[in-house]
Write a protein that binds this DNA or RNA. Structure first.
Lengths: 317, 317
DNA sequence: ATGAAAGCGCTAACAA
DNA sequence: TTGTTAGCGCTTTCAT
């Protein structure tokens, strides 16, 4: 219709291609008139780059994950990518990854708790670039981003001791969760360095109900703690509600802290002092690093790209 | 390597193709050994069907949306589709849809509040099948699924009156939101039919903060209501906290109800009586209907596929 | 039931 | 800067 070749049209849509401004405008105008849009599927087939980035996440809902994955998706879009969502059903990360690989995703961001070495092998084999977010794994071709968990534990310990608390307790996330273990490590070692009594460790899970149960355990504990640091906010809110059900008053009887700063932490019923995840920084860094690796087609250095959390003072301490 | 043609391999992976079981097994075994996976991108190019379904949602976080979109993604995956996530930045639904269309998505599920006619036109033009979920629109080629909002209002009205409440109030969602308007319609008309005084209408938004503000308005209102029906749970929780900040006790001073049954509604601090969204039913129906239309390539009937919500009795009434 | 061949819409290498 | 050509990996006639 315009008497130009297919290549010229292709070039008009490629920002880096060498084409005269005149022709580009001509093509773009005609495209707008006809409602033409390049077919990203066909582009992917030839260029061997789909523009797709998959996000794998656990199928249980969690306000923190949801916030994070939405921010990730937005940032990926902003940088010209498209997001494939892979909720992991019945722990079947491998299946979800195979399906993503069928779609030739360029990159994969993993935010699920249960990782498998097969998944990593698959990605390696098919050249899918990998990022882990708030997860840990050794010896894989991936970079890791997230909040600095040890530091978060340290921040909590210092804050609570500064506020005059002496006998502290930690309510952990799921057994084997590295995020929880690192927070505990930073917390307990800092308390030791400060010369405070060693903190009580209460094994729990990343859920509200586990917090409720942990509260009973705390109330029945011989060594009554005066402040409780919880592995995340949901857990902390469960602890608060559990404590209150037995008549305790927060922060007079017990100070409570969490990690994440989910929106509900600001609600008056909880008014929870917490360490905020630097979501924006984490998301920007994750996506930038991943996209760079995709574009340069280079391996990950296995780097830990941690960002510092921010203590948010509210009324629960 | 196997001495079979490309077509045979293709047929081995197509469940409906005519191929001997022997050859199929041969191919599949070899594929497993080599780690071969069909390229969905190439398939999409030739078959004109990408297998991709996009989900468009608002970029603000909301536990209800998150639950729903995750369930949608899981169900789509289960049926062999792959999900493209399109969070809408700065209300730019049109842009997000153009980008989805570039990827030749077969279908689009819209769960965003601000719809544009241009978006619908685009989908129509490119043959993208459409579903709206808990949204309304007239005269478009789409089916609509969701909770029966009028019925939810009716359920709330009947329940509250049965519990002996007389002067009721409704705290609305965003102005112009059809979900909120329908809930109000069902609520107020049922109260009228029951011969109760006409309810107070308080204009708010679907947010916790709006609930907080609505609480002040309620406290300052000349006609003191004894029960408050809120357009959703988040709003109801805001109202509860706002009321309590001024010393009111729930449910003694005010009964409060919501809609959605988000996980937080069950937390002891709120223990909110609410009308549960039948998420599973809605999701199954939405995906089934959409996939059917995609497979048969047939138009939507503009049907309203509503599901009944379930009243969950807790302690806030 | 199988194979040969065409072609989906695009990009990239090469030539002009 | 532009056009020509080949080919990405698959599915789908059409023969056989």
């Amino acid at each position: 219709m315009l008497g130009v070749s297919q290549s010229t049209v292709s070039r008009a849509f490629s920002p880096t291609a060498s084409i005269s401004e005149k022709k580009r405008k001509m093509v773009m105008d005609a495209a707008a008139k006809l409602g033409y849009t390049p077919n990203a599927i066909a582009r992917g087939l030839i260029s061997n780059r789909s523009g797709l980035v998959a996000i794998a996440l656990d199928s249980e809902s969690n306000p923190m994950y949801d916030l994070q994955s939405r921010a990730l998706a937005l940032e990926i879009q902003r940088r010209g990518g498209q997001v494939v969502l892979c909720p992991i059903d019945k722990d079947d990360l491998d299946l979800a990854i195979s399906r993503a690989i069928e779609y030739q995703v360029d990159g994969l961001i993993i935010a699920t708790s249960r990782l498998t070495s097969r998944a990593f092998a698959q990605c390696e084999k098919f050249g899918v670039h990998l990022s882990l977010i708030n997860r840990y794994a050794e010896g894989i071709n991936a970079n890791i981003t997230g909040i600095d968990n040890q530091l978060a534990g340290k921040q909590a310990a210092e804050y609570l001791s500064r506020k005059g608390h002496r006998q502290l307790a930690y309510v952990s996330g799921d057994a084997g969760s590295m995020t929880s273990e690192e927070r505990w490590r930073g917390f307990s070692s800092t308390l030791q360095a400060l010369g405070l009594p060693s903190p009580i460790f209460i094994q729990a899970k990343y859920s509200f109900e586990a917090g409720l149960a942990a509260a009973s355990e705390i109330l029945g504990h011989g060594m009554k703690p005066d402040a409780i640091f919880c592995a995340n906010d949901i857990l902390a809110m469960g602890v608060m509600d559990g404590l209150r059900q037995k008549g305790a008053v927060i922060p007079q009887d017990y100070a409570v802290m969490g990690v994440d700063n989910i929106p509900m932490a600001a609600w008056p019923s909880y008014n929870l002092t917490t360490i905020a995840q630097p979501i924006d920084k984490i998301v920007k860094r994750t996506v930038e690093d991943l996209m760079n690796r995709i574009n340069a087609n280079q391996d990950a250095e296995g780097a830990y790209l941690f960002e510092e959390g921010t203590l948010i003072e509210r009324g629960s301490v």
